[in-house]
């Protein structure tokens, strides 16, 4: 879905500078309009939150007013405590992401390129897939114990699944006509892989990485809620234990913003990547 849209936007973007001023302004206005409509729902929620707390719909200890949450945010940010938690969470996700995506790429490549590998692992892999990451938690606690290893495994698994599936799918979806052309040119198997199959699968693989990261980030929070003594998930669980629900809300907002930023960053990279692919292929 993103591929055709982006390839259509690609040449247009390059022609941006050459476009008449009026069109530029129109584009800018359209962008501002989209940004504005994206803000409507969050703003409405913020308003609802504010009303709920001023009208006393929920006790202020349970849902602290936005003002207090903002003050706690500034407080945590200026003391450096927030940064410590963010760093801990990012590091945990980064390590797990490397492990999970590495393993996912290997299995995905294997299953995508070789029927034998797929016969061997496919059924087991898809069976494992049917259980959500957190469904493994009770079993993994017994096997691995309640420790950091457990958190790496669970987050890595969330990444792994998405990367493996999308890699395999990407490889399988190489357009038949490209393979035929390659045959006509009598490319070797290695050449076929390097010049045709991988480039054509790259966008899908990238999508797998992007969703993998998103899944990993979600799992991180749950895992940290349970076992960690630092990180954003820990901040949430501590806020609840300490009856400081403002800390919980600060953590939720930060988790949301970071998740959004990471996804937007990867989406941008993905866009650049696939545009490069398109340009190269049609050059």
């Amino acid at each position: 879905m993103s591929k055709p849209a982006l390839s259509a936007r690609g040449p247009a973007a390059r022609g941006f500078a050459a476009r008449p001023f009026a069109t530029q302004r129109l584009a800018a206005r359209r962008f501002a309009g989209r940004a504005l409509s994206a803000m409507i729902l969050p703003a409405a929620l913020l308003l609802l939150w504010q009303i709920a707390s001023t009208r006393g719909w929920t006790p202020r200890q349970i849902l602290p007013p936005p003002k207090i949450v903002w003050a706690s945010f500034l407080d945590l940010a200026s003391s450096g405590e927030l940064l410590t938690h963010i760093k801990a969470s990012l590091l945990r996700v980064a390590i797990s992401f490397l492990i999970g995506s590495g393993a996912g790429l290997v299995l995905g490549l294997g299953m995508g390129l070789s029927r034998r590998v797929e016969d061997l692992f496919g059924v087991a892999f898809h069976a494992v897939n049917q259980v959500p990451t957190l469904g493994w938690l009770p079993v993994m606690i017994v096997v691995v114990g309640l420790n950091d290893t457990l958190s790496y495994i669970l987050i890595a698994q969330a990444v792994f699944v998405s990367v493996a599936i999308n890699t395999q799918r990407g490889l399988r979806q190489t357009p038949e006509r490209l393979v035929e052309v390659a045959r006509v040119f009598r490319l070797t198997r290695a050449q076929l892989l390097r010049k045709v199959i991988l480039p054509s699968a790259a966008p899908q693989i990238f999508t797998g990485l992007r969703f993998g990261l998103a899944n990993g980030w979600v799992s991180l929070v749950v895992v940290e809620l349970l076992i960690s003594s630092e990180g954003l998930g820990y901040l949430m669980s501590w806020g609840r234990q300490a009856f400081q629900l403002d800390l919980v809300l600060v953590a939720i907002l930060v988790v949301g913003v970071i998740g959004l930023a990471m996804d937007a960053g990867l989406a941008r990279l993905e866009g650049l990547f696939s545009r490069w692919q398109t340009e190269k292929r049609f050059a």
């Binding site: 006790p59 200890q61 349970i62 609840r240 234990q241 300490a242 009856f243």
Partner: peptide, 9 residues
Amino acid sequence: PAINEAFAN
């Protein structure tokens, strides 16, 4: 901690 929440509610 749960008792505090119950008092609040």
